[in-house]
Nucleic acid binder design. Structure first.
Lengths: 347, 347
DNA sequence: CGATTTACCGCATACGATTGCATAGATTGC
DNA sequence: GCAATCTATGCAATCGTATGCGGTAAATCG
């Protein structure tokens, strides 16, 4: 008598057949009533009425797994981002979710934490549990990986990342190399910095690598010398930015400005600087990247390069759904979203 | 010749039957080889070999939708949080994801943005696309809603939120009312504040409501007068905290301390105060709630009440999987995770 | 050496929904 | 008045996988 209700409570979910039985029609008729789109076959008004009532009283919900199996659309897309804790990705996910919600699609979010294995696991996971479309921010995945994925599933794919050049995937990317070049040049020519440091991230195909390239060529074009000890690597996290800046401060030649590859690391870097008793931007100027909300919470307010993740997410989702709807079927498109320098107090 | 490869590329995914054909066995044998757990029926070594090879060469991946249909486990859990952009939830999600990954489960994340309709939509969505378990942070959903959900699906459920009292769901919650009472008392008795404000959030069953209750009784027990004009409501966002604090500052009686129901709003509140030319904590002391990373990024560093979302997420996921594994089947358990005041500079 | 067990495997069905085809009655055309 | 058309519905196959049951050959037993 204690928990008897537990066992008989497990009433199995109501299926179409249950609805059909109650409405005194066949299961196929129920299906046709619900997916009214099948306009070639008409349904009697009175029958439709009975079915809808039965659906109401039973609280029927279609089992989407079944529909997916039958080869239908799953009405679900998957999004993989690189770091759930990085505010940069939130507007991107949000925008994509909004577009998806408008189409009555569900969204499955995954995050890779910048780890290759997690990216691979995501792809396998999506192959086992097919979805209609995938949006992702791959850091390590190569075009070959994407190729096997597309080859095996035929799933529409939209990615954020300039390094992706697969002919069938839509790509969104920022002009971060260009803006990095410009900002380094600006630090030198306008702000008068002669020694400019750089905090990046390991990996050869990541955005950080492209920014590093831009950094070196800007130095070269400005006639500045490249000093390896003012270039340090982190892992996108504030803590790693803190440690990277510490290493720079311990080096023989302290720079008067440091370009940091994202705002989270910049936060850590600023901590390291002020903790050393140095002033920003008087002693060392800092420029970040992303323009996350916290950039204007901290003091001094962070001068940073704004990306526009909301627009990126919107573009990704829009292109993805264009493909799902069959509106577009050509080769992958490439959409550039321009970055912009936001001048605040740290540089 | 341009894009001819586009049309014939859509090779449908490889199924078990394909594997069976290649290995010269029946489809059921393939199934048994892969789910070795079916130990009642033995498989010949040589056959197993052939099957595994076929799986390899074809790159077979099981279609989990089919398994789900067949009544098997979906190997997927869903998590609904209240705000993707609130860092408080990140460790919670992360911890749950880690536990799930350890069990080789996939995770589907959704966020409600504190909106009732989104919460309902999430539940419907999970009913249509069944999962093995659900973790959520409901703000508006009542026990009745949970009841219909459990009744219809029989899905295991673990939630964060003290207000949930459904007999079959596992609940994790913080002792936020207690700590709020203590901190208000501390602000008065130790810090000497006579006029203490409060920035909360609308809604009668949210955590903010409980904290408000604790606030009023602490005032009463301290013999302090309750002043409605120093109590303002926001929506958990920094902007709303900014506006709430503005309204407080415009009121006739300005408090010397303000208790803010979460750190994001506290950030906005601090902005409003400093922008007014007032100093923290000398003119107005601020106490936040959550201890998000940014609490120690801003200046002055935010004194706040730490919750431990990582432990919460771990507890939620652990309890959920205990139920999925059948280790536990009794009534819902309630786990309290204690909060703790982190004294920094803002109070 | 015949009978029973054992090891191994295939057949067929079910899960819940979609959809081509068949069919029953009603209506129209000539 | 009978064929042709239309309307409204049911039947049955199908998607990919799991599994109860039955079947065959080899092995063991008495």
């Amino acid at each position: 008598m204690m928990d008897e209700h537990k066992s008989d409570r497990r009433q199995q979910p109501v299926t179409m057949r249950d609805v059909a039985r109650l409405a005194n029609v066949s299961q196929s008729t129920v299906s046709r009533v619900l997916n009214g789109a099948d306009s070639r076959i008409p349904i009697g008004d009175e029958t439709r009425q009975r079915v809808m009532e039965a659906v109401e009283t039973l609280g029927y919900q279609p089992n989407l797994h079944a529909g997916s199996l039958r080869g239908q659309k799953t009405r679900m897309i998957a999004i993989m981002i690189a770091d759930l804790s990085n505010p940069f990705y939130h507007p991107l996910v949000r925008a994509a979710q909004d577009v998806a919600a408008g189409r009555r699609y569900d969204v499955m979010i995954a995050n890779s934490d910048h780890i290759l294995e997690r990216e691979q696991h995501f792809m396998e996971s999506v192959m086992r549990r097919p979805v209609d479309g995938v949006i992702m921010v791959p850091i390590h995945l190569s075009d070959d990986d994407l190729e096997t994925f597309i080859g095996r599933t035929g799933t529409a794919l939209a990615v954020l990342g300039q390094h992706v050049r697969h002919p069938e995937v839509d790509v969104v990317f920022g002009n971060d190399d260009l803006i990095t070049y410009d900002v380094i040049t600006w630090l030198h020519a306008v702000k008068g910095h002669e020694q400019i440091g750089f905090i990046g991230v390991t990996g050869s195909i990541s955005a950080a690598a492209r920014r590093f390239q831009a950094y070196t060529s800007a130095l070269e074009d400005a006639g500045l010398q490249f000093r390896p000890d003012v270039v340090q690597l982190g892992d996108w996290s504030p803590e790693s930015g803190y440690r990277a800046m510490q290493r720079i401060l311990e080096s023989t030649a302290t720079p008067t400005a440091v370009f940091v590859c994202n705002d989270l690391m910049a936060v850590g870097a600023i901590d390291a600087i002020t903790q050393r008793g140095l002033r920003i931007p008087e002693d060392i100027a800092i420029v970040g990247f992303d323009d996350i909300p916290a950039a204007s919470w901290i003091r001094p307010r962070l001068t940073t390069i704004a990306q526009f993740p909301k627009q990126m997410g919107h573009a990704l989702a829009t292109m993805l759904f264009e493909r799902l709807d069959g509106l577009i079927s050509g080769p992958g498109r490439r959409v550039e979203v321009s970055c912009r320098l936001i001048e605040r107090e740290s540089a």
